[in-house]
Design a protein around this nucleic acid. Structure first.
Lengths: 142, 142
DNA sequence: GAACAATACATGCAAGTGCATCTAATGCAA
DNA sequence: TTGCATTAGATGCACTTGCATGTATTGTTC
């Protein structure tokens, strides 16, 4: 995805500053605020954690069976963490798991109707939270 | 800090896309890569975790005794997590703790010589890791 | 000053994560 | 086919985190 980030200082700014470290602090701040807010809002309103939502979201966007491995490439979780997220989701019937026919080591994950509904319900919350988080970045507001 | 983020698309881009969500995915990706790399490099080379480094860094930048509470405002950790990070740092003698004289509920944290040295040693690693992480953002490279 | 709310920090506990490892299935070479 | 390295995913374990709570001190109201 051809997205590039441009830093610009509103005022005078010493360009010897370490831009990477500044950017990192920005990332840390947004990540902390965002995760905290998502955890609270998705949790209270839809009974989902950020990881659970992310996994459901990936499956919905692909709109097909996915292998654990494919998900692993897209969500920022270790293989073991992902395995457990999927286990939790299966436990509450938002996804189902099954063995791949062509490679019986593999496991595919399928979203259930209930999972699809829960995801659809949560998308606006997710979006609203993030718009709030980035609301103070004027260039992102429109 | 007057830092603003500007998204720009290299090509055609549907401006109905949800910019906040895209930015969030950028934050998630950089955070995951950055934390993973920092954990590895700071850990292997200096025996520090990202939280430990961050706390040392805050103290060094202020260059004075700090109260736990002040640190709490600056690092993205809960009060309890910070309390434990400081405890770990004290255990390995990189900081020392003491009660505030003016408010005996308060605890100030002081960096030791060894802590200062370890921090100084780790700063270049920290910086190098982050420059590597953001190296693919052309606007940040110079 | 006594009683009580508020604040600063520490700690018990449950939950999520990554690493190392385990099991099962596959691929490949002899 | 047999034997062995490789891969997919699950699981034991240690560690960190946040929430709720505990302890000690301070401030406030009567």
């Amino acid at each position: 995805m051809p997205l590039h980030v441009y830093w610009r200082d509103g005022n005078l700014r010493d360009m010897d500053d370490d831009v990477a470290v500044d950017t990192w602090h920005y990332v840390l701040a947004k990540h902390a605020k965002g995760m905290c807010a998502l955890e609270r809002e998705l949790g209270e309103r839809h009974g989902l954690g950020p990881s659970e939502f992310e996994v459901l979201d990936r499956i919905v966007r692909h709109d097909r069976k996915l292998r654990i491995q494919e998900l692993c490439d897209e969500v920022h979780l270790s293989q073991s963490a992902l395995s457990r997220v999927v286990a939790r989701l299966e436990k509450v019937a938002l996804v189902s798991r099954g063995v791949c026919d062509d490679d019986r080591r593999g496991v595919f994950v399928c979203i259930t109707d209930e999972g699809r509904a829960r995801h659809a319900e949560a998308v606006p919350t997710h979006q609203a939270v993030l718009q709030e988080i980035f609301a103070d970045d004027p260039a992102l507001a429109r």
